[in-house]
């Protein structure tokens, strides 16, 4: 239990630092940034404490907002993702997901990919919609969501493969 807590705290800090120092400065085509810090919410243990996940997601989002002057948009997107996460698990892995030991940071199967894709889309859609805050920008917003989602997923998968524990 203690090691899970430690791993998650470490992941929280590391992803946040990476996001702020490296990924926030990546601007593909001038306006597309990846947000791989959502990996914290995605990789959180399946049977972990849900309230703790909500609270830590909120903290994660608020710190992101602090650094990017975006009001509460990151926080909203993060807690929304944290809240719908069980539903996404059910959708991607089938009803009995709680009894399986799902380890997301292993070989990429279609189920795992579906789960990551859905999580990132939900997070980015909320984030960019709230950031634009205007329906007249909807087409631009959707384009940004699409491009950023692709970018984020590529980076997320690279990170997952990089930190994958090598046991064979």
């Amino acid at each position: 239990m203690n090691s899970t807590l430690f791993v998650n705290t470490f992941r929280f800090i590391l992803l946040l630092a990476l996001q702020i120092i490296v990924f926030n400065n990546m601007n593909l085509l001038g306006y597309v940034s990846p947000f791989p810090y959502v990996l914290f919410i995605i990789l959180y243990p399946v049977n972990g404490n849900k309230s703790a996940l909500l609270a830590s997601s909120f903290l994660l989002g608020i710190i992101m907002d602090l650094f990017s002057n975006s009001g509460g948009t990151h926080a909203t997107a993060c807690i929304l993702l944290a809240y719908v996460r069980p539903t996404l698990f059910k959708f991607a892995f089938g009803l009995s997901y709680e009894y399986q030991t799902i380890k997301l940071n292993e070989v990429l199967t279609p189920q795992r990919f579906t789960f990551i894709l859905l999580s990132v889309v939900i997070h980015h859609f909320t984030l960019f919609l709230l950031e634009a805050f205007q329906l007249s920008f909807i087409l631009d917003t959707l384009l940004t969501v699409l491009l950023s989602t692709i970018f984020t997923i590529i980076i997320c998968i690279i990170i997952i493969y990089l930190i994958k524990p090598n046991k064979r």
């Binding site: 907002d65 009001g71 509460g72 926080a75 909203t76 807690i79 929304l80 805050f133």
Partner: peptide
């Protein structure tokens, strides 16, 4: 959600 939306 209330807190973050109101901040937004």
């Amino acid at each position: 959600l209330g807190i973050s939306l109101s901040l937004t």
